[in-house]
Design a protein around this nucleic acid. Sequence first.
DNA 1: CTGATACTGAACCATATGGTTCAGTATCCA
DNA 2: TGGATACTGAACCATATGGTTCAGTATCAG
Lengths: 110, 110
Amino acid sequence: MVQYQGAKRLDLVAGAIADPTRRAILARLSRGPTTVSDVAAAFSMTLTGFCKHVRVLERARLVRRTRRGRAKVLALSPEPLREVAEWTLQYEKFWNERLDRLQAFFEKEE
Amino acid sequence: MVQYQGAKRLDLVAGAIADPTRRAILARLSRGPTTVSDVAAAFSMTLTGFCKHVRVLERARLVRRTRRGRAKVLALSPEPLREVAEWTLQYEKFWNERLDRLQAFFEKEE
DNA sequence: CTGATACTGAACCATATGGTTCAGTATCCA
DNA sequence: TGGATACTGAACCATATGGTTCAGTATCAG
């Protein structure tokens, strides 16, 4: 499959949010930046395992990581979610439109 | 990680759209229902491989498959995308709001 | 300087994903 | 009935993902 403009980024972002742990991290960070350990405390997982999730979010540019002393602070970087929203909203007309045509199609099939 | 309401479905749907082949399938089906072979013709992949992608989309309830003679017709089922749109739009305020606070934060760090 | 804190990288493991080939089922057509 | 058409399942393979442990680096506190 050929990769069009921004397709790889959508792969990364959609893949990143396809995991409940990572969505929970984003939800936590939406309440403000905080340290790795502080976010990690909510999960029953090793810190190393947690860091891997952070790495996935960082590669998708959904979080930024900066050093503050010996801690690292995570901050939400929500812009890539906009791209996902825009992609899904391309299909808005399909879930909004009356489903007569589709229903008729399936009734005909059965 | 505990799975909250609908979380597993979001996993499936976000995972399904995290692949350019599958997004292309959805784009094709947005122009109307058609057969497996017809959609598959656009991809340089075996039919078996293609079917696996269809299976992923079907498990995420993004396509429906019905038999018509010896062919099977695929149709877009866009409702699950609405859930993804709604999830991402929770973060709309973050990409819409002025980034003063965040920028100030990073400037302070550097 | 020393030790504790806060990560992070490397290696490893089990399972999932994305592809293949080959064989099988279901339907249409002559 | 007997092909040809249109998938689909099973087995296999390579790589990716999500977790672990253990060892290492960087910073702070005394």
